[in-house]
Computed example of a mutant assay.
Amino acid sequence: MKTLLLCFVHGFKGGDDTFGSFPNDLQRLLTNALSNVTVRSLVYPKFETRGDLAQCVSRFRDWLEEKVIDLEVQNATPSPTIDPSVRTILIGHSMGGIVAADTLLSLTSDQPIESSGILGSSETHLNTLMFPYVQGVLAFDTPYLGISPGVVAHGAEEHYNAASSAITQLSGLAGGFWGAKAAASAETKEEKPRAALPAPPTSTNTTTSAWGKWSNIAIAAGSVAAVAGAGAAAFVNRDKITEGFGWASSHLEFVGCLMKGEDLRKRVNTLITLNKELHVGWANLYTRLGQQAVGENGSMVGSVIGNQRTFCNLPKSDAKAYWYEAINDAAKDETGAHTTMFYPKDNPGYHDLAESARNLIVDWTTSEWYESNNSGTVMGLD
């Protein structure tokens, strides 16, 4: 008996419910299409999207290995590493697609699971006897080449308003951070606020007037950084005040890989190499806004960059062959399309999305490994 294991991994700040009913729906579609194997689905438990990405990949790989070993024992496989009975499709949403990709890269590389190892070498050494055996990586709206500038540009006003409110709230906290006396002293400096920042509140109260200290620091950092920093700080205050700014920075560390352009390109190029040389499937189904983002004159509403509004940057090289658009005619912004792609009530293209995923996996799976087996069933995996 042979098993095709679908393993789902959520993205940044996601959870067990990220995929909705999609794992069951995709499993059912594949069961009908791949009758020669047992199709199982598995959702990786919710994990903290914080800290070092490589450590997250390492933990996920260990967990996946344990699950696959259990299945190989159930299947009484004589030689799991030479001729495994279980092949896995790693399915990731958003940052989960990068976790999935780096897991594959670590399995096919002799290097350690670190950016300097699996992405740092210009020479690729492929391990064809990987265990667990990954048949393909199917990503959903994963920013392999970064997040589209339009995501920020089209929502700039909303983000600015939120940040302005955050700065106002933080002005009352400055005394707590730096001390009322120091804050009051800083206020005596007649520093004019930048135009991009809201005017400081006027009050003789030492707690409220502590804006002065925050204003000086914000201005020194520059208006853009100040707005972003204020928004992050407000979020810390709301949810994790006892852990302070370290909580925010640890989460930023997790998504920091999106700022490393060279590593992003190396990851994509290595995935293309694995597809061509080891026949490991790889695709990125990315969201694109549809009818709700088109104005009366036929142009994209609020379009700032190009005539397509997507959450992810799109490739311009050979990687274009691995990107497949998934149109959402109901979403009004890129982030909304990104977060609701697995919910039929918010995404009219849900069923097309599921069929596209099925077709890709069927194409990757119908190989000699698949043809050599003829007894397939379907079941869940606890």
Rank of each mutant, 00 (worst) to 15 (best):
G97L: 03
G376K: 00
N127K: 14
D363E: 15
A248S: 11
E334S: 00
I219Y: 10
I98S: 05
P23W: 01
V152W: 13
W369K: 08
D62E: 14
E66F: 07
T188C: 10
R267N: 09
N307F: 01
L119D: 10
E66K: 13
N237M: 07
T340D: 04
F342P: 01
D17M: 06
A199Y: 09
S116C: 06
N307L: 06
A153S: 14
A326G: 09
H251N: 10
A184N: 11
T207W: 11
A321M: 06
E262A: 15
N307G: 08
R50L: 09
T18R: 02
G97F: 02
A163R: 07
V151H: 03
W364H: 02
S106M: 02
P193F: 04
F235H: 15
V304I: 14
V68D: 01
G290I: 03
R40P: 00
S171P: 08
D263N: 14
N24H: 15
C56K: 07
W364Q: 02
L34A: 04
I217R: 08
T273V: 11
L71N: 00
L4Y: 01
E334F: 00
G380W: 09
W178G: 10
I327V: 15
I241D: 12
P84M: 03
G176Y: 06
Q74C: 07
M341F: 12
P348D: 12
K46F: 01
T18W: 00
S249M: 13
S303L: 10
F342K: 01
I361W: 05
T3N: 06
C7L: 09
E187F: 11
T81L: 09
N75S: 15
L104A: 09
G97W: 02
K240C: 13
K240Y: 15
